[in-house]
Design a protein around this nucleic acid. Sequence first.
DNA 1: GAAGTCATGTAATTGGTTACATGATTGA
DNA 2: TCAATCATGTAACCAATTACATGACTTC
Lengths: 186, 186
Amino acid sequence: MANEKKINYVILGLLNHEPLTGYEIKKRIDRSLKFFWSGSFGSIYPALDALEADGCVEKEEEKSGRGKIVYSITEKGRTLLREWLMKPAEKDELRYETLLKLFFGAELGREGILVHIRKFEDKIRKELMVLEEYTANLEKLQGEEEHKYYLLTVKFGVETYRAYLGWCGEAKAVLEKKDHGDGSCG
Amino acid sequence: MANEKKINYVILGLLNHEPLTGYEIKKRIDRSLKFFWSGSFGSIYPALDALEADGCVEKEEEKSGRGKIVYSITEKGRTLLREWLMKPAEKDELRYETLLKLFFGAELGREGILVHIRKFEDKIRKELMVLEEYTANLEKLQGEEEHKYYLLTVKFGVETYRAYLGWCGEAKAVLEKKDHGDGSCG
DNA sequence: GAAGTCATGTAATTGGTTACATGATTGA
DNA sequence: TCAATCATGTAACCAATTACATGACTTC
């Protein structure tokens, strides 16, 4: 009941918008929550079972076709979701291996670190383009209450990614300066 | 040997700078890596044992006083660290419960979401002040190669946190507009 | 008919945290 | 003397991922 598996709330939150299969839940996570949350099939399916046993969701098995299992939220589930939403967020956590390597950069040296930064920059640039596309689409499509909140999370992504790119430029400038060497000129 | 416990590299990276006790390693993590990495005693002490058994670190037990155990890195450890540093970063991951709640904000409503955003803003504002202090100190103290990389990670934090605060302002503006209600005026 | 996606699930593992237990040293 | 911090460690737990297994439907 009151366990703290966040995947439960992710599922309830998504089902609160529309009935979905486990597979579709996974897709939603990978598309819309991707940059601030994740979840695997290995956690989704067992969580759906548990939520159903608990009466928080209901399942409907399709008789024809592939026999997919569509879940929808119950009143009990909605209450649980609402209770969780009202509680303060417990953990906002960033875990960037790139920064960890950068922190220990003295052992690797300037050039090696630049490789990491350029790779990071590329990845962010691509993801930013996607998020900017989302922004444009969502801004056209305003109206539904839900879209407003979705758009805010996307804008969060856009602004932090822009800051990342600004930082990448700065970091490269610092490291590409050749005036005080690290022994590389022979 | 080739297991992927990141805590091993955190420890090796820190010991590469200076010999430390397990307790001091924990302090370093909580002070300097805090905003992009974490680690508990429950992972540090066992990892130190394993690294020692592996010949990657050496321990020296203080005979007098508290009998603390000071670890230092070996050549093998340094090699392992260097190998890891050269590999591309595998995972840069952000997991913000605040954004998750925001995403499902339609169920909670405007006021509830504003509470989360204000709390988030406060936390970030405080952390930003700390990071800005670090920046000032590190900029004075330039010279050591290590400080340059440390400073870059701090600057990353400063710029992303500033972007967060900018976004908070924008988000509050969107949600505080009272013109299109959510049923709150009776 | 092959590749790709849709679709559901399980078992083993993992990397880590939390909570607990213990005790020495330091400083008000 | 009392609280805070220094200091080391372990056992229980935990949420989640990875890898695997299976098979139906769709599209070229």
